[in-house]
Amino acid sequence: MVKLTGIYKGMRKGYGETLVELGKKYDNVVVLDADLSGSTQTAMFAKEFPDRFFNAGVAEQNMIGMAAGLATTGKIVFASSFAMFASGRAWEIIRNLVAYPKLNVKIVATHAGITVGEDGASHQTCEDIAIMRAIPNMVVIAPTDYYHTKNVIRAVSEYKGPVYVRMPRRDTEIIYESEEEASFEIGKGKVLVDGDDLTIIATGEEVPEALKAGEILKENGISAEIVEMATIKPIDEDIIKKSKDFVVTVEDHNIIGGLGGAVAEVIASNGLNKKLLRIGINDVFGRSGKADELLKHYGLDGESIAKRIMEEMKK
């Protein structure tokens, strides 16, 4: 059971806490950061295990290079920075030094998407899912809330190989009542709410917004099935095949190449007779503002999502 709890908590916090837990459990967990450990919350691990934490300074490319080298010596490596730099600045090093040799490096990027807010377009990564998804061997995940993040980080620590995890800066609404409820399995989507008229597939911080949209739709007599798609690659094809004939994807990411792109590929490749509406950032750069203002501005809050769906259904 999921519900909008009205409690907001950072996925980053869940990440930091779980790193400490993993550090206690495994001697070979090491963590790297690029001068943002306070923001990414890897500082929690650094404080607890200073000998297994390596700050690369403001040098994301070398952070990933060092991560790869450490992985060749049998370490489970977590490397963190803001999504812009972790994915964009270091992309080619990730491709050639991490993904190609399938090394055990987890790139956990925070501050993804438009909701970075005030820092503006230079820091708002709405392309990371697309560019990470295009790399062979790479798993791409966006957790849903604080509790879910903990289970995602535990799962990726058990998985042998490269993983990219993205999460937002802001505290997001908790939708699971406990850690136990927030189950996660790599590659598996999850139906959170049953419905008859359409399927909303959402990822990351947009899952709570999709739930809000679902409630508004319900008040308007529309029954929406809501799917959490935390793993964008490999994507859960079965759950897409079983979706309603009208599918809406929702993500804080460019509609090109992200969740919307991935779902479109599954629908088209399988010849599924489904209409698809992709809600996300419409191939534009963002701008400065408060996170909730920006969500509204770009049509990514629950209310805007519901409105857009109802307009589309009238067509």
Binding site: R52, G65, A67, A68, L70, T72, K75, N96
Partner: peptide, 25 residues
């Protein structure tokens, strides 16, 4: 082959990580 190389500069960066890993062990 200890690590794939060819894209210049990257092997050097990885070797720093290897040296760190060996020292940790």
């Amino acid at each position: 082959v200890e690590i794939c190389t060819g894209s210049l500069g990257q092997g050097f960066s990885a070797s720093v990580g290897m040296a760190l890993g060996c020292r940790l062990d």
